[in-house]
């Protein structure tokens, strides 16, 4: 991502944001609520277009892609939404199958098998016929993850995958993250507020602040950062920020 600007009305969210993610790594993006993390993520998959600057995935400019190019890109990217965004008119099984149905030459049996496989990857069993409204928040979130990985994407974008979950489920999801990376070589971008989780899963961590990249580095580098803003965030100590702005 290069010098991305995005404004909603008079409100500038991204003010020249730049970031590079290497193949095969998992990068966590941290930052205060409303700092534009989700907006940044949506630019990668073309859900939003930047006002200025450009976003390149696999060397291609996302904004310049036509419909079929975008479809192609989206097949390679899985997106895990903050609140799962499962289709509530469909069962979990149908939800997970949605992406698979867009792949040509995949018959019902293959889809069915793949759906089961993905659901068991996220430790969900016998939920096939249930509707999202009949399940707990953690289960819904895992189902959302199952839907994102169903098509076997090269990139996975997680929008706060662990927020609001119990510690055990957080661990399960983190483990899944790591597994995706190690077994399938998936590149991941994770938006999170949970520093423990970020330390566990990340190769690198980036901090977004006021629409710009504040800091980026390996887990160790961030942990030992001297920047009071970064320290305030990772240690949860607002007093460190005083006098900053």
């Amino acid at each position: 991502m290069l010098d991305v600007h995005k404004a909603f009305g008079n409100k500038e969210i991204l003010k020249g944001f730049s970031l590079t993610v290497e193949d095969g790594e998992t990068l966590s993006v941290i930052g205060y609520s409303g700092s534009g993390k989700s907006v940044m993520l949506k630019h990668i998959i073309g859900l939003m277009q930047s006002d200025r600057g450009s976003v390149h995935v696999d060397g291609k400019d996302v904004a310049a892609l036509n419909r079929s190019g975008l479809t192609e890109l989206r097949r390679n990217v899985g997106y895990v939404f903050q609140f799962a965004a499962l289709f509530d008119s469909m069962t979990i099984g149908e939800n997970v199958a949605m992406g698979l149905r867009r792949i040509p030459d995949m018959d019902e049996e293959e889809i069915e098998a793949r759906v089961r496989e993905c659901l068991s990857l996220v430790d969900l069993h016998d939920v096939h016929e249930r509707y999202p409204s009949e399940m707990s928040g953690g289960m819904v979130k895992r189902a959302g993850l199952a839907r994102a990985i169903a098509t076997g994407p090269k990139y996975l974008l997680y929008d706060e995958p662990t927020t609001g979950l119990d510690p055990v489920t957080v661990k399960v999801i983190d483990r899944l993250n790591i597994r995706m990376k190690e077994e399938l070589g998936v590149t991941g971008i994770v938006i999170t507020h949970d520093m423990d989780s970020a330390y566990r899963i990340s190769d690198r961590i980036a901090m977004l602040y006021e629409g710009k990249m504040r800091a980026v580095g390996t887990v160790e580098e961030i942990r030992n950062s001297e920047d009071p803003l970064v320290r305030a965030f990772i240690e949860g100590r607002p007093e460190l920020m005083e006098g900053m702005s």
């Binding site: 859900l47 899985g78 997106y79 939404f81 903050q82 965004a85 867009r102």
Partner: peptide
């Protein structure tokens, strides 16, 4: 409702127009 719960975005990410 689909818009505010990001279901429409989800459709897009699953390559549905």
């Amino acid at each position: 409702t689909m818009r505010v719960t990001e279901q429409i975005d989800a459709l897009e990410t699953l390559a549905y127009d």
